[in-house]
Each structure stands twice: as structure tokens, then as C-alpha cells.
Amino acid sequence: MASHGIEIKNLYKIFGPRGRDYIEAVQAGLSKAELNEKHGHVLGLKNINISMPAGGITVVMGLSGSGKSTLIRHINRLIEPTFGEVVYDGLDICAMTENGLREFRRHRTAMVFQKFALLPHRTVLENTVYGLDIQGVSRDESAKRGRYWIERVGLTGFENHYPNQLSGGMQQRVGLARALTNDADILLMDEAYSALDPLIRVDMQSVLLDLQAELKKTVVFITHDLDEALRLGDKIAVLRDGEVIQQGTGQEIVLAPADDYITAFVKEVNRGRVIQAGTVMRPLDGPADGMRVANTTTLESAAKDMCDAGQSRAVVVDAEGAPVGVLDLHAIVSAMVTPAKTEVPKLAAE
């Protein structure tokens, strides 16, 4: 199935019985606090515009209460928008009929939840094929497909266990298998890994990245953890109080945080795992010989390769292998420790 991107345009959500009545006021600049105080309505999302690339992972990041869950639930319309559009494959999801929406949810989207949301009375296999049951697929067929995905997420042998017999990490593997078995293009993950222990979380991130390399789904991943966002996101959007305050690649956000809020976020990040060789290299100034690193290599792994090879200088090459610049250990170390602002101009290389 070919992937399609998701376009979110001018999306507003105002919680409360008469949300629509306040749209103009909010568009004219009424703040979240004022709306709540004067009219008792909650501004959930304000003028959201995000273009989520087909076949890529878009991460939506923000603190608790910033509107992440509200945003992701507009993509399968578990929450009705107050204003705006969510377009997928030429269709406005917000304009679908009840039946159209049900079909869309059955065949085009699958969702993974923070608290797993498995059915306690169904076994792992029965949970995995839930989406297919709903579609009316025969048990023979669905069990075959379910078993395949159970194996892919590493749960072979647990098909007949009940969720309460599994650890949190294993339960979320079931959640992932359930979503993948649906064979939908859009994969929605709302803080899917936030409830897991750090080590297991990293494990599950790897599972997702491995599968994604092969499946190329349009993934929307919610997290409040910047490290997770940077590791997974082809694109990251940062939310605060229902507004997008910055969007771009991980590198762009780490190197040029849009405001103090994001700067505070970014300060604790391991920059060596985000910034790429191509970003901090110097122009080619001599012969292009010696060891080579790809321009998309992160500084951390470039530094490791160079130390292993006993080199202090390396030639940076592009995807075709043509030399595009040079990198030395000094530049790497200073990029890993210098505050972001000094490197902003280099972003022109992107």
C-alpha cells in the first residue's frame, strides 16, 4: 500500500458545549487562560499546521497537558475538531460520514495506546486480531496474519497468554502487534512507550525503527521525552499550550531552538547523537584522502569510528560517495559541547 502524508490545516479545538461560538475570538487572539476564565471553555489546540510526511515518523512532543493526545485523536477523529482540516490521501477526515469514518479507521489507521488498552478477557492472539475481527475476516485468515506479527514483535510462544500474565513491555508489544496486524498505512502512537522502563523503552524504539525501515508507514508518535523524539523522529513538532512552537528535523530543533522553552528542553540532550557530520564539517581544503564518513553519520559514531581508526581527520562524503567536506576531532568535540547558537549558519548545508 502506498503511503500518503497527512496534512493538518488551521486546526482548532475548543473543549466545551459551545466551542464553535468562540472560534472567532480565539482566532482574533483570545488566550487560553482568558477563554477559560471568561467563558469556561478549554482551548485544546490553536491553529495547528503540520505536514506529516508519507512513510516517515512524525513526532509530536510537548509537556503534559500541551494537547498532544488531543492532536493525535484528530487524525482518526476520536475527537471532533472545532475548526480546520485533516487531509489524508485527498480526503478531509473531518468531513467523513459516520460509515466513511468507520471504514477509514478499520483500513487506514491503527493506534497504540499509552496504557496498552488491551482486552483483558482475550488472549494475546485474540487481542492481536481484534481489528480483523471487527472487519469480519475469518478466524483462519486472521490467526495466520496475527501469528506473523506476534512473531515480528518477538512474542512467539505467548499467543495463548492473557495480558495480565505479561509484563508492561510485553503488553505493549501486543499493542504494537495489534496495530500492525491491521495492515493500515497510518500508525498512531500516543505516548506508546511512556509507561515503560527506560531500558525496555529503548528496546521498543529499536523494534519500531527496524519495522519502519521495512514497512514505511506514516507514523505519528507522541512523546514528552526529547531523547525519544530525536531518536525516532524524521520530523518533530513541539507543542505548548495547544500551539506548535517549532517544527523541523531533530537537528534543526537542537541547533536552533525557537525560544527559551525549547532551549531549556534541548540543553540536556546528547547532541552527539543528533548532530550529523555534514552539519559541522569544514569545506574541502586539501586532498580528499584518508578515512571517510557519510555526511548523515552522527557525531558520536563518527568520533568513535575515527578513534577506532586512530585518525583525527576524516573526509565527509555524500550519499553517492563524493567528498563534500572534512571533519576533525576538534570540530566534533566543540559541536558536542558548544551551545547551539554558534552553529546556526551551518544549517544552510541542509
Binding site: N76, L78, R105, H107, F113, G131, I134
Partner: peptide, 14 residues
């Protein structure tokens, strides 16, 4: 559980 119901909705249950 509200989340389980939401999951059922998300998969397109009638």
C-alpha cells in the same frame, strides 16, 4: 475502562 473503549473505537468498531 475508557481507554479500552477508545481502542475499540479506534479500530472501527460499530
Amino acid at each position: 475502562d475508557k481507554e479500552v473503549l477508545e481502542a475499540a473505537d479506534a479500530f472501527g468498531s460499530s
